[in-house]
Design a protein around this nucleic acid. Sequence first.
DNA 1: GCGCCTATATATAAGTG
DNA 2: TCACTTATATATAGGCG
Lengths: 164, 164
Amino acid sequence: MVRKRVEIKKIEEKPKMYTTFTKRRQGLFKKTKVLCTMCEAEAAILTFSKAGNAFFFGHPSVESVLNRYFTDPSSSLTKNEDEKVMPPTSSSLTRNEDEVVMPPMSEAEKKIVELIGQGRASWDVGVQNLGLLELDELEAAIQEIKCKVVAQSREIISNGEDQD
Amino acid sequence: MVRKRVEIKKIEEKPKMYTTFTKRRQGLFKKTKVLCTMCEAEAAILTFSKAGNAFFFGHPSVESVLNRYFTDPSSSLTKNEDEKVMPPTSSSLTRNEDEVVMPPMSEAEKKIVELIGQGRASWDVGVQNLGLLELDELEAAIQEIKCKVVAQSREIISNGEDQD
DNA sequence: GCGCCTATATATAAGTG
DNA sequence: TCACTTATATATAGGCG
């Protein structure tokens, strides 16, 4: 219970380091979201743990913020011309889940998987390519999924923590 | 002196909003630095205030983190079995010159993909295997995605209207 | 290890100069 | 508006089941 103030230095014990990373990263993301909400700010945060895991958050989206970073005049001042980061032109995100066999999906699930399945586009871009009708369907699909999640949360709460 | 808990919503009074932005941004940067120090992590945070001011921080540098963001394969998915670490040894990743590829997914996207990506389990089953904390995150993630969808819809409906 | 708990450290809203 | 104050809210280290 935080009996002592932690020193701001490298944590030598790996397990402890990972635990700390997770907790602090979560806190960081949360605060970033709050900042965006309260101050109508745009922000992106990119993290890579020592273990190599990557976590990102961006409002309105990581891409939009990065794009602004690359184009906003006030940003240029802090960068070196010759050390500009080039926007992605490589492909590394393609997941090979082609042979994943799943139980029958609901329409909602299918909708969502469909978007992700595009493979070459992230949600932001994927969404931007949809028409009103599709967006409407997707919204409903998302809502449906969300209901399941919320329902599950409630179930766990009411059952204490008795669940597999 | 924090006489009351602040609501996590847009601050209407501009002066107050800017003050809050400044304070919270500083806190955010500070925490980001601590995270990097304690956990040997790499992180970058980019912020744009409503007023248009830009602030960045990156360890080891903003540029290096962004470069990693655009190239690191581990940016795509996070698995959790025994091994979730996958150092960029060079496998199936990297450059396709003729294909436009998007950066890694956001937290929200990852959360959702994570569930589906588990394979062999539909959403219903996947959700049932999550703990409260995860469900909470997932809910937020779903909400985030939904916001994007809704926003896109509204934009289309506006059909050309533009604001600020 | 994972999720929850809680005592304490830290962040911060509002006030003051 | 910044710098400092300080009361309170929030984050979190370590413990527990």
